[in-house]
Design a protein around this nucleic acid. Structure first.
Length: 472
RNA sequence: GCGGUUAUAGCUCAGUUGGUUAGAGCAUCAGCUUGUGGCGCUGAGGGUCGCCGGUUCGAGCCCGGUUAAUCGCCCCA
């Protein structure tokens, strides 16, 4: 016998869990629709060519590849058979999608003739990453993405951030939305000296909340980037200012991009990027509802390989969470000005954010937000005592459903105890018992499982009686 | 890709310095109660102690390997 098992990092969702996940998705969907977003879905499988090269080297390694059908080895060049990395591109042409943004880009390019721009779409589907699973990290997980394609105004960023706030408020989860801008970080380039130093700097400062500020300084020294430590220290100083506006003013005053021995072109680019960022962020802030939960986080450096403007990250900030609860971000996104460039359609700007359904669920559960939701069914379970009662039970159940009341007939004429146990376990408020007595009188013994009271109700009065008890 | 921890019934876990036939709670099923539940009582079924090997008179327990899960690093939702 084979022991049943699940691939690492995947999960089954039992009814209780799935109902809650679906409830979360319904809340999000309602927000998305109310802001004028339309749904799309794309296939789980994409051509590997579509996916590769979009997520950096590390992302490419995390792609799930699908082995070609048929004699795939026979078609692979002989000399590559010992080199699994080179071989993989010959034996695999498809892979599972890694996120929803790249499929969106492909979709937009392929359907550009039919779409109305700006195109606002939402998409809630699973994605797959061949990552090592751990707490809050799965190999199959759901993203709920909203993107605006073909519009470059900060109005878009403001709407998306507002949708974050709106959604999490409706879910009842306290969050903090952190915002940064690629331009502010680009302004550091002259001081850091080179693009590769800039990249390493970003990797390092992104760890600040984990290893601390001194940890980052030490990390920079370890990376032989001692010259970057003053930049980091200045950034921390700015970060300590208490308002969104004050941090921006610090950038305005300091002109961090002005470095004496840097080349003029680099300084000029830094200046342009910085001024654009300051302008965008000021405007963005002015458009947002006045919320303490939106902060400018100068150390936020996520996913900069493809973002070109504002970047966002959402983390849980809820007093009901255990003090040691840490799960990384539950949402993130940003602006990418050349979304569709890789597919041959230039100059299509886009901005989008993602809701990490699985982490939102895990966080809400840890905060105890599901503790009180009852799984009760405000409906009626019909309990036939014998086969002769099936017809009356079926008819009663049908009538109840037609009146908008959930109802089912128990699956057999089992012992009453067993049927009542089922009703209790499922959380039914009412049961309707039907046996020979009820059949003779064309009525139902309607029993309230909370109070234990029961009375015979004629078929004509059943709906009204049930509605009265359930209060609907 | 790298490191730590764990692995005993469907689930959560006990299991003493290695010593008869491996236990509990929950869950399931049956009975107490021919058509009245939640509680209770009685009973039943359910285990190759992850897998392979070693040490020993004797291994769930000690040792080696292996697989899987889990936590952390990298990266990310």
């Amino acid at each position: 016998m084979q022991k049943p098992s699940l691939p690492s990092g995947t999960r089954d969702f039992a009814p209780q869990v799935l109902k809650r996940r679906q409830a979360i998705m319904r809340v999000l969907e309602q927000v998305f629709l109310s802001h004028g977003f339309d749904p799309i879905e794309t296939p789980a499988l994409e051509n590997l060519k579509t996916l590769q090269g979009k997520y950096g080297d590390e992302g490419d390694q995390l792609l799930f590849r699908i082995l070609n059908s048929g004699d795939f080895m026979g078609k692979a060049p002989e000399e590559l058979r010992s080199d699994s990395k080179a071989l993989s591109s010959h034996i695999s042409d498809r892979g599972l999608r890694y996120d929803l943004t790249v499929p969106l880009a492909r979709f937009v390019v392929m359907n550009r003739g039919q779409l109305t721009f700006p195109f606002k779409r939402y998409q809630m589907q699973p994605v797959w990453r061949a990552d090592r699973p751990q707490k809050g990290r799965y190999r199959e997980f759901w993203q709920c993405d909203i993107d605006i394609v073909g519009a470059d105004s900060v109005l878009c960023e403001a709407e998306l951030v507002e949708m974050y706030l709106e959604s999490f408020a409706k879910l009842g989860l306290g969050v903090q939305v952190r915002i940064n801008h690629r331009g502010l970080l680009d302004a550091l380039l002259p001081a850091l000296g080179s693009k590769s130093a800039w990249n390493e700097f970003m990797i390092s400062i992104d760890k600040a909340d984990k290893i601390g500020r001194d940890g980052v300084s030490q990390d920079l020294i370890n990376r032989e980037m001692g010259h970057a430590v003053p930049v980091w220290e200045w950034l921390c100083e700015a970060q300590d200012l208490d308002s969104f506006e004050a941090k921006l003013e610090a950038f305005e005053d300091r002109k961090i991009y002005e470095v004496e021995d840097a080349n003029a072109q680099s300084v000029e680019q830094g200046k342009t990027a910085c001024e654009k960022a300051i302008h965008d962020l000021k405007l963005l802030k002015s458009l947002l509802p006045d919320q303490a939960s939106v902060v400018l986080d100068l150390t936020l450096a996520r996913g900069l390989s493809y973002y070109t403007g504002a970047v966002f990250e959402v983390s849980a900030d809820d007093a009901r969470l255990p003090a040691d609860f840490r799960l990384g971000s539950i949402g993130g996104g940003g602006r990418y000005d050349n979304l569709t460039g890789a597919f041959g359609l230039a100059d299509v700007p886009g901005v989008g954010v993602s809701f990490g359904l699985d982490r939102i669920y895990d966080t809400m559960e840890a905060a105890g937000l599901f503790a009180e939701d009852s799984q009760a069914i405000a409906g009626v379970l019909l309990c036939p005592m014998d086969e002769e009662s099936f017809a009356l039970a079926t008819q009663a159940s049908r009538d109840l459903r037609a009146a908008g009341i959930p109802s089912e007939v128990y699956t057999s004429a089992a012992k009453l105890k067993k049927q009542l146990d089922y009703a209790n376990n499922r959380g039914y408020a009412l049961v309707g018992i039907i046996g020979d007595q009820e059949r003779a009188e064309q009525c139902i013994m309607l029993k309230n499982l909370q109070t234990g009271q029961q009375e015979k109700i004629g078929m004509q009065q059943l709906i009204a009686q049930v509605k009265g008890v359930l209060g609907v």
